[in-house]
Design a binder for these strands. Structure first.
Length: 547
RNA sequence: GCCCCCGUAGUUCAAUGGAUAGAAUGAGAAACUUCUAAUUUCUAGAUGGAGGUUCGAUUCCUCCCGGGGGUACCA
């Protein structure tokens, strides 16, 4: 509806800049502002002056007249407030006619492809809180894009290539034991890697060794290949366990290593085209024109870098999937990397796909420092999951964790506090689930809900407020996708639950004497259930019938 | 140094350039013989500082202060 108003105004008055928004409680369902028109006494601009004969009041009235004509079926009232807002009040007829369609979402994707890259764990390393935010956020965004008609490819771009493997392989060759890796792969490998870094402080020559091993790996050394494959398989098994608990799925796990053979030709190509050049033995792309630091795409020893692989991956994705856009759900700290990637895409003709870095803030501990485990490293996801499940059970605990991440604006750092996350009260996952369970309970006690939901018999304020809230579900999803902000959807669901609880407390459903009203309320309850289920589903939150 | 992100009640977070800056939590009251009190209702409390653009700024611009991140051979 918001969009229809906007489009109509834009068409009728292309010379005036309208913005349609949601007014505060009690002041209508939509509003748009014309205060600037009324304030502009003389209407200096030629077009407007001509249009109104220099009389803004008259123009305002004619705008409202036009709106009333156009939208007489949708709004029962369109009026100008004293302070220069046009307020729109949805008509009940419109609500009744359209409420049943509220779960049919607009097809804004039109089957165009969107690649959502998220989670991106590193092989042979534990997944930590940063991966959790990417995983939960990426999964929810992928769900919502899909619901709005996009063809979504969920891509877990594994960190399975790079110097780190050289280091790991060196470490394994020096200190590793096969049985240990077999029994406890990730932790053992992680420890080996950490030990390598610790010893590096006293033995700087190890750095060189690590690079050598990676170079051997890149050149196809059989033993290193075998080790790498083994480490990767073991890691994937561990990751799968975590994804299963989180209820997250991917379409592909194609990682950095897959583009390994494209890298040399890619660097060659970029050099031939004059885009890349040599500098201090390495190969760089100068990005002065974008006001960015130069991008390094090949090390002086010839080995590839993260960015090189990302360019190759981008090229591959464009060729293979022709996506409209790619969402990289990756932390804030990699902004430079993606700015560089975007710039390189532009100058090398890879610009038909929109590159969108969905960046997010850090997860901090209660002390506002980077969240770390007792040993000082990043906290493994597994620990968080175990704790959540231990304290609240699987359905509630995991959902609480996810909700806590999704309700926050992407760019803010999240302060992680278990007391808040698992708080059963207030703006929390359990609150939403509790609300759902209350409805589910009514539904199951009602038995079958009669098909004829005569919603027009509902006249109480709370009933109508609920209808008005529910009918906004599709446009909230659109807004969520336009901004790639899941907190828009979580806030909506939270506010909806607020209304539902007020409804639950203030009017009877099963205990309503008037059969007509009882049936209508049951119809309303059934709709609430459907919206909550869908909303939870999109966020990746479970909807338990009992809690 | 340069680049990016952030700064809002005691605390944790909201607010497409618009209305009386919303919630949650904590604190203080109130409501269960009634569909799950993990609920609801009421009270108290905030835009880091200085300018600028605008009819109107938490939002945009400049400077300052504070926190975090990045800054070529990690990812």
């Amino acid at each position: 509806m918001k969009k229809q108003i906007q489009e109509f105004l834009r068409k009728e008055h292309p010379d005036i800049d309208f913005a349609v928004s949601y007014p505060p409680e009690g002041l209508g369902d939509y509003s748009t502002n014309i205060a600037f028109l009324l304030a502009r006494q003389s209407l200096g601009e030629g077009g407007l002056a001509k249009k109104t004969g220099g009389n803004p009041q008259k123009l305002a009235l004619s705008i409202v007249e036009g709106l009333r004509n156009e939208f007489k079926n949708q709004f029962e009232k369109i009026e100008i407030a004293k302070n220069g807002f046009i307020n729109f009040y949805l008509s009940k007829k419109y609500l009744l006619d359209n409420l049943s369609e509220v779960l049919k979402f607009p097809d804004i994707g039109k089957s165009k492809t969107v690649i959502v890259e998220y989670s991106q764990p590193n092989i042979a390393k534990v997944m930590h809180v940063g991966h959790l935010r990417s995983t939960v956020l990426g999964d929810a965004l992928a769900n919502i894009y899909e619901a709005l008609g996009y063809k979504v490819i969920r891509w877990n771009y594994l960190g399975d290539w790079g110097t780190q493997f050289g280091k790991l392989i060196s470490a394994y060759k020096m200190w590793g034991k096969e049985e240990e890796v077999k029994t406890n792969p990730i932790e053992t490998l992680n420890d080996l890697y950490v030990r390598f870094h610790d010893e590096l402080k006293n033995r700087p020559e190890l750095e060189e060794k690590g690079r050598e091993e990676f170079k051997k790996l890149e050149e196809g050394d059989e033993e290193n290949r075998k080790l790498w494959k083994w480490f990767k398989n073991e890691s994937l098994k561990e990751f799968e366990k975590i994804y299963r608990i989180l209820g997250v799925k991917f379409d592909t796990y194609t990682g950095e290593s897959s583009f390994e053979k494209d890298l040399k030709p890619l660097v060659e190509e970029l050099r031939n085209k004059g885009i890349a050049k040599e500098s201090q033995g390495a190969v760089i792309i100068s990005l002065d024109q974008f006001n960015l630091l130069p991008a390094l795409i090949q090390r002086s020893d010839g080995a590839s870098l993260y960015l090189t692989r990302d360019i190759a991956a981008l090229k591959y994705r464009i060729k293979e999937y022709k996506p409209e856009k790619i969402l990289y759900v990756v932390g804030n700290e990699q902004s430079l990397h993606f700015d560089q990637l975007k710039a390189i895409a532009k100058i090398s003709g890879l610009d038909e796909t929109e590159i969108s870095h969905i960046k997010f803030g850090l997860i901090l501990g209660k002390d506002k420092k980077k969240l770390s485990s007792r040993e000082g490293g990043a906290v493994p996801i597994k620990e968080l999951i175990d704790k959540a499940v231990e304290l609240s059970g699987k359905a509630v605990g995991i959902s609480a964790l996810k909700y806590f991440i999704l309700k926050e604006h992407r760019l803010s750092d999240i302060v992680f506090d278990w007391d808040r996350i698992l708080n059963l009260k207030g703006d929390s996952g359990p609150y939403l689930q509790y609300t759902y369970a209350r409805l589910a309970s009514i539904k199951s006690k009602a038995g079958t809900i009669s098909k004829s939901k005569n919603l027009e018999s509902l006249n109480k304020e709370i009933d109508v407020s609920l209808m008005k809230k529910m009918i906004k579900f599709p446009e909230i999803l659109t807004l969520t996708v336009e901004n790639n902000l899941t907190n828009i959807l979580t806030l909506y669901l939270y506010e909806l639950c607020n209304l539902i609880n007020r409804f639950y407390e203030s009017v009877p459903v099963l205990k309503e004497d008037d059969e007509k009203i009882r049936n209508a309320r049951l119809g309303l309850v059934s709709l609430m259930i459907q919206i909550l289920e869908k909303g939870f589903n999109l966020l990746g939150i479970e909807a338990p019938e009992r809690i």
